[in-house]
């Protein structure tokens, strides 16, 4: 039954007869909003390459004028901290309140501080 179904996705260039189920790689999308200072992660998508990922990102995530700049990064290229390491990574900072700049007396006549 499945032996003669050779019709893969009409336009999926990544698919070859050897790997019929192979799909496009995952990309993470970052958008800088109009008044935003930095790019913010907005989601992910599939695309065959970086150029198409940029265009898909435009179509998926800036349809309502959300942004003026897009970055795309292969999800594989992102090294992320592991949830298993959460305790050793982040908890040690919890009791070090002296790392917060809250122990200074701010002079009253200093503006913009």
């Amino acid at each position: 039954m499945s032996g003669d179904t050779t019709t893969t996705g009409a336009g999926a260039p990544a698919a070859s007869p050897d790997t019929p189920e192979r799909s496009w790689p995952l990309w993470e999308v970052f958008v800088r909003g109009k008044r935003g200072l930095s790019h913010v992660h907005v989601g992910s998508l599939h695309a065959p390459d970086a150029e198409m990922a940029l265009r898909n990102g435009r179509d998926l995530y800036t349809r309502r004028q959300e942004g003026v700049s897009i970055w795309v990064v292969r999800a594989d290229d992102i090294t992320a901290s592991s949830p298993d390491e959460k305790d050793s990574f982040f908890d040690p900072a919890a009791d070090k309140i002296y790392r917060h700049p809250t122990f200074y007396d701010v002079p009253e006549d200093v503006e913009y501080l």
Binding site: G9, G11, A12, H46, A47, D59, L60, R63
Partner: peptide, 13 residues
Amino acid sequence: NAPQIEEDMALGN
């Protein structure tokens, strides 16, 4: 009907 949902969106746009 497009090869991927991303392409559905692109052609729909």
